[in-house]
């Protein structure tokens, strides 16, 4: 192992290098990725906010850095960015809590 820690911020700059070991797939991925983030039915700012929220959900430090920068570049402010993270957090919390219906169902089966 070349390093004694995970998640070196410098590694984000090497993302493009993944093509070195599988170029056709990497080319397709980056072309698709670029297309995804272009303005469409959603604005670039809205897409950057979604990406920031997802980055928090998947807890990817590279993605959090990249889309904090991306959101600011696209004109989002702190309030919008924090609201986006709350949306992600609310879905995470809700997705746990909604399973409590299964717990309640099963407990109902087991108890008098």
């Amino acid at each position: 192992m070349s390093k004694k820690h995970y998640f070196d911020p410098e590694d984000l700059k090497k993302f493009g290098n993944i093509g070195a070991w599988q170029k056709p797939m990497a080319d397709k991925f980056f072309a698709w990725y670029g297309e995804v983030f272009k303005e469409g039915a959603l604005t670039e700012r809205e897409k950057a906010l979604i990406a920031l929220a997802v980055a928090h959900t998947v807890q990817c430090p590279y993605c959090i850095d990249a889309y904090t920068s991306g959101c600011l570049e696209k004109g989002a402010d702190e309030e919008q960015m924090m609201e986006a993270v709350h949306v992600a957090a609310a879905i995470r919390a809700g997705s746990s809590l909604v399973f409590s219906t299964q717990m309640m169902n099963h407990a109902g089966d087991l108890t008098m």
Binding site: E39, T43, E44, R45, S69, L72, E73, K74, G75
Partner: peptide, 15 residues
């Protein structure tokens, strides 16, 4: 801050 400006037309629409 220390970032570059985004797309002018998109920023204008938001503003």
């Amino acid at each position: 801050g220390t970032f570059l400006p985004g797309n002018q037309a998109a920023l204008e629409a938001d503003f």
